[in-house]
Amino acid sequence: MAQVFYFFIFPGLLFASVAGGFLSWFDRKLTARLQFRVGPPMLQPFYDFVKLLAKETIVSSEAAKSLFLMAPVFAVTGACLSCVLIFIPVFGIGNGFQGDLIVIFYLMMVPTISYIIGALASGNPLSNLGASREIKLLIGYEFSMLLVLAAIILKAGNTVSIHDIILLQQQEGAFIGSLSGVLLFIPLMMCVQAKLAFVPFDLADAETEIAGGIFLEFSGLTLALAKLAKYIMMLVLPSFVIVVLLGGFRLDGIHILWSLLKLIGLVLLITLVRNTNPRLTVGQSLRFFFIWMNLIAVVAILLAYAGL
């Protein structure tokens, strides 16, 4: 029963969607402010969600119906699971629900894959195009992310346990304090940007090119769930960065404030990048990750070997 509570209430579905919703509002609001606009009200993500829940859900006649309808459910599940696995060690909840870095890495892939599968299942040709871009992008950034991951495992002394990594950082200072840590931060943030499908890597759901791409056929409940998964990922990915590079969260005294600031700072960074760049093409993104980000990551790994 405890697991069910962890999964659905705290730090799972409910907590993650509320927190992620606020972060996504923060992102939208900040975007608006950067563009001299007022921006949406604070509860906007929740309005959107509830509205979409109440709307009609349309399934394309070309779709593989069951898969199309279930894909967003998988997305939410994957996002939630990764959230739980990240936060369980953070909150020091002992038993029952654990996973290591590799598991989290794979679970964080699940929402993206679900979107891709859902888009392909929708039977819309334009979604196909979006899905093809998304999966190419996935191939692109996954390699950089893996390098970063490996570097972190290396820095943590060949352990993959989230708990140990946090503990190590709290004892010996966050990984970002070292030169290799700083270098690792760059590709990792770019991967986060790509995973969140924000500009400059939003080519899969580029509205002005392919009219919504992978989400083109989603409507009503399916769209609501897809949005929910996005909200959760908005919490999960920055938290992941914090856990592996920025010293994790600490929940005592003044550290709560620091942890919150880290989270908000990261979202701020994501939003800034998102608002100061145009979208890249598939080839350019692939080149960006394959050449530049991998280069940085490899240099960081070499530095980490040298103990820097």
Partner: peptide, 26 residues
């Protein structure tokens, strides 16, 4: 559990609101 929950939502909550339509081709 979440798959079951998802199915439940579809069956009970929005079952009537699901409509089948041609794909949207702009």
């Amino acid at each position: 559990l979440s798959i079951i929950l998802g199915l439940l939502i579809y069956v009970l909550f929005v079952g009537k609101k699901v409509r089948i339509d041609k794909p949207f081709m702009l």
